[in-house]
Every structure is written in C-alpha cells, then in structure tokens.
C-alpha cells in the first residue's frame, strides 16, 4: 500500500521505532536470524568457557554428532510445516537400521540390497503415517504416537534386542562413517549426505509448486483445498518423503555409531522437534525455513557437546535443552506480534 502523505496513519508509519522494535521487524522478515544469533552466542559462550571447544578437532566431532539429528529434522520440518508433528522419527530410523543390519549381517545379503530394502521400509513406514492421517483423518500426534510404539516394538522383536557391530556389516552400510580431511577438519561422508539433503529439500520447498503447496496446506488446509491444491496428496507425500529421509538417517546412524543398536538414539524424537522449533518453524504450520532447522540442529548439538566438554552432568544438558526450547518459542511468539 502506498502511504497517504497527509493521513495520521502515515505519520504513525513514519514514527521513530525503538531499537527493540527494529530488531523485532528484522526478525519478522528473516525468521532464521534469531537462531543464527543464538548459535553465535552459544559458540562465544562455550569458547570462553572451554579452551578446547573451538578447535578443528572439536568442530569436526560436533558436525558428525549433528548429522543424524540434522537429517531427521528435515523430515520433521516437512511434517511440522503442514501443521503436523512426527513422534515416530526415531522409531522409523531405528527400525530401518535394524532391518538393514540384520539382512546383511555376515554377508547374508549384498549391502546395496539391504540398504535399499531398509530405506524402502522407512518410506513405507512414512506412508503408513501419511495414510492414517489423510485417509482415516486421525490427528498426526495420535498417529505417530501410536506408530512410535509399534515401530519400536517391531524393531526390538525383529532384532531380538541384539546389537550388530560394524565388523559384521558390509562396507557400504558403514561407508557414511568414513571420514576425510579438509585442512584440519575431519568430516564424514554422512555430513556430506546431510548437506545434500538440505540443498535438495530447500530447493524443492522454495522453488517448486510442491513446496508452495506444503506451506499452503500447513497454513490453511481448507483454503488450499478450495483453491485446488490436492491437500491430501500433498500430506501423504510429505509423510512419505519424511520416511525416505529417516531411512537415509538410519544409514548415517550406522556409520556414526559403528553398530546397529535397537535402543540407539533415544532422544532423536525430541531433538528433531527441538531443532525445528528453535530453527523458527511454527508448530502451527505454514511458516519456516529449512536453513533455520539446520541452525536449530547445530544449536541443540552445540549445547550438548559444549556442556559435555565442560564436564557438566548429563542431566544439566537435558535441562538446558528444555530451557532452550521454551526460550526459542517465546522469542518466536514475540516476533509474530510485530506491528506492521
């Protein structure tokens, strides 16, 4: 709208903003700025607290630790953008991982085949979530709360509760744990895969019609449907693509953990949700950027990693993560109250 020079509202629009208001405005336009700022503060704080924090070695480990949660958080972001929530992320990943490992154990099946079956299973698990949400119209929270238990139980029953160490697994399944050096940094192939996932999904979300539909369905599903957006197909696709991402995360996890363990990654669900929320994606759907999620995942891991470097008790780390979520969402709510 063009401002009317003479009106009182135009006067109001030209008013001096307080510095705080200006910050609020900037954050409203660029919601990923606040997590980036938070990440920066976290880094500075830990750099001051522990001298070993900001070394190439530590940074490499930090990135390796972030890889799995960052991958899961991509799927979680897609689901949350549609105003859903996925509590089954960790369960799908572990189930997929145990199937990959059990099938290929001691040369039982070629690595490629086991990997493909494992990923396909994760895709199927995601599709089941999607079908329950779209066909039976169950709330995503309930659906994934149920499948969380179901997939966890299947993973435990199928594997007999036994871990499979990496020396029993084909090289391909361990490949994403292999590292290479860039200068002093040691990076794993898993990190490369995660960056690729982010690049591809960011492109899809921001540059394609499908991405636009994901936002539209999340913002107002009924309006999207009336506008001709195939809402249910989009929702089903979102849960299925999320499943695919969890399958790839399973592959990364085997390499990272050096084993396939049925009770691996117990905090994966909440960590992925935390990463998405801290990254500025709204739990009400329709708003958020994938880059924010990546920053969010880094923040979660930096907290955990930095505190453990400082020798802080595990429970304090959990407590800190909890505080982080509440503060992040409070900031998010404040930003949304911005005056035009």
């Amino acid at each position: 709208m063009t401002a009317d020079v003479s009106s009182a509202a135009a006067e109001f629009a030209r008013r001096q903003q307080s510095p705080l208001q200006r910050i609020q405005h900037q954050l409203h336009g660029r919601p990923w700025l606040s997590p980036l700022f938070l990440l920066f503060v976290t880094f500075v704080a830990f750099f001051i607290a522990t001298p070993t924090f900001l070394t190439a070695n530590s940074m490499g480990i930090l990135l390796q630790q972030t890889a799995v949660v960052a991958a899961l958080a991509v799927g979680q972001t897609l689901v949350i953008l549609t105003a859903g929530i996925d509590l089954s992320v960790g369960a799908v990943m572990v189930l997929s991982m145990m199937v990959m490992a059990t099938l290929t154990k001691d040369g039982g099946m070629p690595g490629v085949l086991g990997l493909l079956i494992g990923v396909a299973l994760a895709v199927g698990a995601g599709a089941i979530n999607g079908l329950l949400v779209t066909r039976i119209n169950l709330p995503p929270f309930i659906v994934t709360l149920g499948t969380l238990s179901i997939f966890t139980a299947i993973a435990l029953l199928y594997s007999g509760g036994e871990s499979i160490q990496q020396e029993h697994l084909p090289g391909l399944l361990n490949a994403l744990g292999n590292d290479f050096g860039i200068g002093k940094f040691r990076l794993t192939w898993g990190i490369v895969v995660v960056i690729a996932i982010y690049a591809v999904m960011s492109f899809v979300l921001s540059q394609t019609a499908w991405g636009r539909y994901v936002y539209a369905v999340g913002d107002d599903a009924e309006s999207a449907r009336l506008s001709g957006v195939p809402s249910k197909r989009i929702l089903l696709a979102v849960y299925t693509v999320a499943g695919l991402v969890y399958g790839i995360a399973a592959w990364i996890l085997i390499g990272r953990a050096g084993a396939a363990t049925p009770n691996a990654a117990p905090t994966a669900n909440l960590d992925s949700i935390t990463a998405v929320v801290i990254g500025g994606t709204s739990l009400f759907g329709g708003r958020g950027r994938l880059i924010g999620t990546l920053i969010g995942a880094l923040i979660v891991q930096t907290f955990d990693f930095g505190l453990s470097q400082m020798g802080v008790n595990q429970q304090w780390r959990v407590l800190a993560t909890g505080l982080l979520v509440i503060i992040a969402v409070a900031i998010d709510q404040w930003i949304r109250r911005v005056k035009a």
Partner: peptide, 8 residues
C-alpha cells in the same frame, strides 16, 4: 471463507 493463504 475466501480460500486465500495468509502466509503466501
């Protein structure tokens, strides 16, 4: 109910 998407 208009069927416009507020965030877009």
């Amino acid at each position: 109910q208009l069927a416009v998407i507020p965030a877009l």
